[in-house]
Design a protein around this nucleic acid. Structure first.
Length: 935
RNA sequence: GCUCUUGUGGCGGAAUUGGUAGACGCGCUGGACUCAAAAUCCAGUAGUAGCGAUACUGUGUGGGUCCGAGUCCCACCAAGAGCACCA
């Protein structure tokens, strides 16, 4: 059969008969199936489009055959940079190239044979659409959700435009990969942050892939903490920091402002001014990537000013450093070097104070504990590269030197005394005092529980000189120098081992612990201390509990030509004035010089710029920037159902009935852009009263990525692209679609192979041969009955899960079953064609006609199954002996356990394994397994 | 560095969610048809040992739970994705 020929024939017929037109008056339940619409870039569809559109279409067709009133529209996201860049290169106007591309893509989409209803098509660059995009802007503006402000923005020097935060991928432009720089500009923003909490909360109820939800959650970046106000010594000003660890406030030994912080100039002292200015200049020169590189060593400059720590009125120095970002929190931090890695690095480098306020806990607490202060001393010999340990053998294993502090003795004195008494060494060099540890233990010799506050010391042995030891009678140990490895193996005591770890790693303690050096927080854990500190801050009016989000407001201005003009005018008298709704659209003029020079191209179009103020009628100028194309795509799914409405963007009743989208299919790359923006739009429109649902996309699927044959992402530069066209040319559309469904796990994708597509070609030809074996004899074959019902059941289950590969293999199995017969009753053949219909649309329509059935196969119901017939009456299950599969046993379905067991035990092979052995236990799970445990 | 995802024959991939691992297909081997080839049909195909029945091994590595683990838990390794000085 010539697949290509029949495909053309049916595509034509489908179009002529309007087979896929949506009927709004149908009684059937609606089903809105949507693929993410595409950008009409090149003239051709690539494999990714086929994979997304073709395979999803199979699901849609299946649903249609299941009796749903399918709404399956298609359109084009037609504004955007590529057309404009193409125009700059070739001189062809974006409108012309875009419309031409749309035309060819529409033809190509028809080759896929999709069940799209083209009557509902939407093209975002046409006036009849962008009029309403502008309307959306005005609606948001009227409700305070669109505003203009001067702010540091991301600027792509190559695209010559600003970018939204979401379009900056690790410091680079999402589109062209250029390093993004920061500029201060006055730009339009949408207040998506107003919806941060709802956008986060509602994720829980969506049938979306978990990883996509995780991406959005991280992007929204909720963080609970507190604002704390710091007064500045000698000024009336104060500044606020955001912290998630307000409980560590007693450990704050300095503050850091972002170099851009507004107070920096004011508080910098004369002595420090020069250094501060130099540092600010240096910071401003750096790109985002350089600046936020975590590998970079910490830099910073003291301002000369001091802040007052509100909890203890201590004066702490104020520094500036680029590790504090102006864009997050308040642009200022309190530094707690003892418990924050970054603060620790900084404090170490600049010799700032480090105060420990959290003490890790080791051992198990007990009710009646006696408190003690003690030390653990670690002595290292550089010469030996070994550590000094005491081997107490059975009495306590291997330990370091430890001891209890005497009255009026400092911890350091105690450590030195203990070392001298127990080992005789006196010439020591202190490397570092180690953090304190709260340790619980039980002393056998004294039958007492202790809770000790232990301070660690890390010494280096300066000289081998030894004095006389002073040992108590019960102190029986050997002094041994051992290597690190031995310690790791043999030091079991938690306190001693932890102390050793502190010696080895000179870093902040980020683990949880109990508070020390913190007055009213002492002894409390993190949760208790946080609660108490929040209360204290609010009571003393120097801070409050708060929540921050990483999500920023969405910057929608673009200094480019090919987009929807922002419907706003500037009047000298009235200021910013929105264009009146009845004056929409603000038409994008065609004759514009759009060579990029960093200025908005529309600015150079006099006829566009000069207008009158809608308010006072005086002279005014138009906004020259256009809207981010993501604005266009944030509501297109709302336009589809009512795309011809020229009164409103959409009728409320219609979209309340048609939305949300039941199944949305597209790439995961839009997780934090389109998918987030669209959710925001729906929520905002809901609050304005234009619609009554909360979420645009109830259920979401991401197709995987089809890679080049080399397993790499397809790209022209790598020369590993595969064009769908040549395969359509050779095998036809159905075969290509079939392979895309059969050869991959849909959500994973994978490398393309030629071998796979040949297999589908072979299979479809086999189907054609089998259909020719149709017989009008009304016979029933038991094995075909079982196979048919099982197949239907399996396909219906798997297609719901977007598991097209297993669906295809089920149809193959059914085909294999049919091929055992030389003449096959009509009903089995009809079922085969119907089963195949969503998967191979053209072929199925053709075969359906060939066996003499009326057009169209898609007006038929998808085959249903009889649960009883789909179930086996007899089943073979495995018999395990001691968990190892040894035999199998045939049983009736749902057979009693006793019957199965006795049957299994009577089998020769089972006997062989059980003979002369004692049966300890038997597990019988009907229809699944028998396991006999013998000894 | 953090978070997430994925590791199953020569290959693409299955496995009713803890119950006979490798469905289906590709490839390969043998056979039928043919003067021959293609196409098609039939049989075999995880590895090792054995003529064979069979035995042992086997789902990235190492432990664990369980009568039973590809599936659950812990640690690690590798690949990919996202975030990245987020206070």
């Amino acid at each position: 059969m010539n697949f290509k020929e029949i495909e053309k024939k049916w595509q034509k017929k489908w179009e002529e008969t309007n087979l896929y037109a949506f009927d709004p008056n149908s009684e059937k339940e609606k089903l809105y199936c949507l693929e993410m619409f595409s950008y009409p870039s090149g003239a051709k569809l690539h494999l990714g489009h086929w994979y997304n559109f073709g395979v999803t279409d199979t699901w849609a067709r299946y649903k249609k055959m299941c009796g749903y009133n399918l709404f399956h529209p298609m359109g084009f996201d037609a504004f955007g940079l590529p057309a404009e860049n193409y125009a700059i290169k070739t001189g062809i106007h974006p409108r012309i190239s875009t419309e031409k591309n749309i035309d060819t893509m529409e033809h190509q989409l028809k080759v896929i044979g999709g069940s799209w209803d083209w009557n509902h098509e939407v093209v975002t660059c046409r006036e009849e659409y962008y009029k309403w995009t502008q309307w959306m802007f005005l609606a948001l503006y009227k409700h305070g959700l669109a505003y203009k402000k001067e702010a540091p923005v991301n600027w792509c020097p190559s695209c010559n435009t600003v970018l939204a935060n979401e379009q900056v991928i690790s410091g680079e432009c999402e589109r062209c990969g250029s390093t993004v720089i920061h500029k201060k500009m006055s730009q339009w923003f949408f207040k998506i942050t107003d919806y941060a909490e709802e956008l986060l909360q509602d994720l829980d109820n969506l049938d979306w892939p978990e990883k996509t939800k995780v991406l959005q959650r991280n992007w929204i970046g909720k963080s609970n903490g507190a604002y704390v106000n710091f007064k500045i010594k000698g000024f009336d000003d104060s500044f606020t920091v955001f912290t998630t660890r307000a409980d560590t406030l007693f450990g704050a030994t300095y503050c850091v402002l972002a170099p851009e912080h507004e107070l920096v100039d004011k508080i910098t002292t004369k002595e420090q001014r020069e250094a501060v200015e130099a540092y600010k200049l240096e910071a401003s020169k750096q790109s985002e990537i350089e600046r936020t590189s975590t590998i970079k060593e910490k830099t910073g400059v003291f301002t000369g000013a001091y802040a007052i720590n509100p909890v203890n009125n201590k004066e702490i120095p104020i520094w500036i450093s680029d590790y504090v970002l102006a864009s997050y929190g308040t642009g200022a931090i309190m530094a707690v070097p003892a418990h924050d890695e970054r603060d620790y690095d900084f404090a170490r480098k600049f010799g700032l104070d480090i105060i420990q306020v959290l003490e890790e806990e080791t051992g198990d607490p007990h009710q009646n504990e006696q408190k003690k202060d003690s030390i653990v001393a670690i002595v290292y010999s550089k010469e030996k590269n070994k550590y000094l340990t005491l081997n107490w053998h059975e009495q306590g294993g291997r330990l370091f030197i430890g001891g209890t502090r005497k009255e009026n003795e400092s911890a350091l004195e105690c450590a030195k005394r203990e070392i001298a008494e127990e080992t005789g060494f006196t010439k020591l060099k202190l490397i570092r005092e180690l953090p304190r540890i709260n340790h619980h233990y039980y002393a056998y010799n004294k039958d007492k529980y202790y809770n000790i506050d232990s301070t660690g010391f890390y010494f280096e042995l300066a000289s081998e000189t030894q004095t006389e030891k002073h040992l108590d009678a019960d102190e029986k140990f050997d002094i041994e120098w051992v290597e690190q490895e031995t310690i790791e193996r043999e030091v079991k005591d938690a306190l001693h081992y932890k102390t050793f770890e502190y010696a080895l790693h000179d870093e902040a303690i980020t683990a949880d612990g109990l508070h020390i050096n913190s007055e009213f927080l002492n002894g409390l854990n993190k949760e208790q201390a946080l609660d108490k500190m929040y209360a204290w801050l609010e009571e003393n009016k120097c801070g409050q509990k708060t929540t921050t989000y990483k999500l920023r407001d969405w910057l929608v201005s673009r200094q480019r030509y090919w987009g929807a003009p922002i419907p706003v005018v500037y009047c000298d008298k009235c200021g910013i004035v929105p264009v009146k709704e009845e004056d929409l659209p603000v038409v994008l003029p065609d004759d514009v010089e759009f060579t990029p020079d960093g200025e908005s191209p529309l600015k150079k179009c006099e006829s566009f710029m000069h207008t009158t103020c809608p308010n006072c009628g005086g002279p005014a100028t138009r906004e020259a920037d256009t809207l981010d194309t993501f604005v266009c795509s944030s509501w297109y799914f709302l336009r589809y159902p009512d795309n011809h409405n020229d009164e409103k963007p959409f009728n409320k009743d219609i979209i309340n009935k048609m939305l949300p989208v039941d199944k949305y299919v597209g790439g995961i790359e839009h997780a934090c852009m389109h998918l987030l923006y669209a959710r925001f739009f729906v929520k905002a429109l809901r609050d304005m009263g234009y619609l009554s649902f909360d979420e645009p996309f109830k259920s979401l699927i991401h197709q995987g990525l089809i890679l080049g044959p080399d397993g790499e992402k397809m790209s022209k530069s790598k020369g590993n692209t595969v064009s769908p066209d040549e395969y359509v040319e050779e095998y036809g559309s159905d075969v290509l679609r079939g392979y895309l469904m059969f050869g991959f796990n849909y959500t994973e994708g994978g490398p393309w192979t030629d071998d796979g597509i040949k297999a589908i070609n072979r299979f479809y030809n086999r189907v054609v041969r089998i259909v020719r074996l149709i017989s009008e004899e009304n016979k029933q074959y038991e094995d075909l009955e079982v196979s048919m019902h099982k197949t239907i059941k399996a396909i219906r289950t798997d297609i719901e899960k977007f598991q097209f590969n297993t669906c295809m293999s089920r149809i193959m199995e059914y085909t294999n079953a049919l091929s055992k017969y030389e003449s096959i009753p009509r009903k089995y053949i009809e079922t085969l064609i119907l089963l195949l219909a969503p998967f191979a649309p053209h072929l199925s329509e053709e075969l359906w006609a060939q066996i003499g059935n009326p057009y169209s196969v898609y007006n038929q119901s998808y085959p249903d199954y009889d649960e009883e017939k789909a179930a086996d009456t007899e089943i073979t299950i495995g018999v395990q002996i001691n968990g190892k599969l040894r035999d199998e046993v045939k049983t009736a379905i749902d057979e009693g356990k006793d019957v199965i067991l006795s049957k299994a035990l009577s089998q020769e092979k089972v006997k062989k394994y059980t003979e002369g052995k004692e049966i300890i236990k038997t597990i019988v799970i009907p229809n699944k397994i028998v396991n006999i445990v013998v000894k």
